[in-house]
Each structure stands twice: as C-alpha cells, then as structure tokens.
Simulated scan of single mutants.
Amino acid sequence: MDGRAVKAILFDLDNTLIETSRAGGMAISKTRELLKTSLGVDDDTASSICDTFKQKLFQESFDPSAGRSIDEVRVAHWEESIQEAVGSCSPPHTLAAQCYSLWKRSRLEFLSLSAEIRDLLRTLRGRYKLLLLTNGEALTQREKVEAVGCDEFFDAIVVGGEHAEQKPFLSIFTLCFNMLGVEAQDCIVVGDSLDTDIQGGFNAKVRATVWISSAGAALPDGSVTPDYTVPTVLDLPDILQQLIEAESSGV
C-alpha cells in the first residue's frame, strides 16, 4: 500500500451486505415442511432431499444458451432430488415446482439490508464512490438486489452473470473502475470470498482488500492473503480510518 487516498469501495453482496446463507437456511426449513406434508415422509428423508438440492445448487453451472431458464433448471434440481430419495414413488412435476417457488419466495423474503448496514452505506456514500459487484446468474442476483433495495446506496451495480467474465477475473474489475472513473489503486474491495473477492482485488492491484469472515476462520493453505480481516462489514470504518492515517503519514 502506498498511502494513496481511497476514492471508491467495491462491495460484494451475498454474505457481505446481506445474510444469504441464513436466508437460504430458513427457506430450506419451510420447504422441508412442505415435503414432509406432501410426501408423507419423515424429517430425515425430507432433510435428505433438501441437502441434495443444496448440493446441486452449489455445483450448478448455468448456461443461458442451453434453452432453459434458471427457474426451469432449479425446478429440475428439486425434481431430481425428490426422485433420488423416493424413487418410482415420486410425485408429479408440480411438487418440484411448488418446492422451488416456496424456496425462492421465502429466501427473498428473508433477505434484507439491516438498518445498521443501510446507515453505514449512506455515511460512506457521502465520502466515497460505492459500487456493488456480485457474481451469479443475472436474474437471480437482480432479484436479490431489488428485494433488499440496493439501488439507492450505490453509484453502480454490476452483476457478473451479465458479463463475459466474473470475479476474480481482471476484466470485470476494470469495467468497474471505468464505470466509476477511478484507478485500481483508488479502490478497496470488500467481500466474504477469498477465491473471488479477495483474489480478484489482488489480481486488479487495488489499494486494499477486506475479507469478511464472520466465523473467524483461519486462512486456508495457499490462499491469497487479505490486507484486512473483520467479522462484519460494520467494522469497515475502522479500516478506512487506518487507511486515512496511512495516507497522512505517507506509509
């Protein structure tokens, strides 16, 4: 770090500004109850179906040119998960569609920008340019952005799925810098993923990277090393103050 002034902050969305994992867990719980009632299965079987769906979601590689929407792909995840658990006794396609609809609707309902984070973003926007940079399928991420009301807090919102490359590739960071009219060394990157947010910031040679690690996990072997690690994005003002002091002292 060279003491240069910070002009812009690039924020990740999921599990950085909003608790996507928590909302997803609550949505899965509601869907598990639907499965138990509809299939007449016990909690273990319903939980197994949900676990299989989550695994398929984690391994998902969506190709919009394949002719199916993301909604259709995820209904198929539920249908396959049910089929794998109950075999030939599986219900019609309509239950998979009901599971997906309940899971999706519930997850969006449980997502929110907390009052504290809203206040933080308002305060920061008075001093810095703010950009939201989120990986993921375009429709899914735009639905989250709309659900939590992100637009008012950012100078720009960039969804990786709308571009040729996502984080950690340099091209999408360069796009963000150009949108804000800043250089890489004017920016800090804040996010919960070492592989995408922090590695991407490192690749782009930003002023500093801030890793949000709510569990206080140790860095994996061979991982990129963030400049700062904090349990919550609400600790960001302390880091910004440190950077201001470093700027003043010429560190």
Results as ranks from 00 to 15, higher is better:
residue 129 K to V: 08
residue 203 N to V: 02
residue 41 V to S: 02
residue 163 H to G: 08
residue 92 P to F: 06
residue 178 N to Y: 10
residue 30 K to C: 08
residue 31 T to S: 00
residue 75 V to S: 05
residue 31 T to L: 00
residue 51 D to F: 11
residue 189 V to G: 07
residue 161 G to Y: 05
residue 109 E to Q: 12
residue 168 P to A: 11
residue 173 F to D: 06
residue 158 V to A: 14
residue 101 S to C: 09
residue 154 F to Q: 04
residue 85 A to G: 12
residue 230 V to M: 15
residue 172 I to N: 00
residue 214 S to I: 03
residue 114 S to F: 02
residue 66 A to L: 09
residue 191 G to P: 00
residue 146 E to T: 14
residue 189 V to S: 06
residue 220 P to C: 02
residue 221 D to S: 13
residue 88 S to A: 13
residue 38 S to R: 14
residue 99 C to E: 02
residue 89 C to K: 15
residue 180 L to I: 04
residue 25 G to E: 05
residue 170 L to M: 07
residue 127 R to A: 09
residue 92 P to T: 08
residue 78 W to P: 02
residue 174 T to F: 03
residue 181 G to M: 07
residue 158 V to K: 11
residue 185 Q to K: 06
residue 150 C to V: 05
residue 29 S to N: 12
residue 50 C to S: 12
residue 135 N to S: 08
residue 116 E to H: 09
residue 229 T to G: 08
residue 143 E to A: 14
residue 179 M to K: 15
residue 169 F to R: 13
residue 75 V to T: 05
residue 42 D to C: 03
residue 62 F to M: 05
residue 249 S to R: 15
residue 105 R to M: 14
residue 144 K to S: 09
residue 175 L to S: 01
residue 196 T to I: 01
residue 77 H to L: 04
residue 73 V to M: 13
residue 139 L to Y: 04
residue 147 A to M: 13
residue 60 E to Y: 04
residue 4 R to H: 09
residue 218 A to Y: 07
residue 224 V to A: 03
residue 58 F to E: 13
residue 118 R to S: 13
residue 96 A to W: 00
residue 206 V to R: 03
residue 185 Q to G: 05
residue 35 L to T: 01
residue 167 K to S: 07
residue 43 D to S: 09
residue 56 K to F: 13
residue 192 D to Y: 07
residue 211 W to E: 07
residue 31 T to W: 01
residue 25 G to Q: 05
residue 47 S to L: 11
residue 45 T to F: 02
residue 102 L to C: 05
residue 119 D to R: 07
residue 147 A to H: 08
residue 5 A to F: 08
residue 120 L to P: 02
residue 197 D to L: 03
residue 141 Q to S: 04
residue 26 M to A: 10
residue 92 P to S: 12
residue 43 D to R: 05
residue 11 F to T: 06
residue 155 D to S: 10
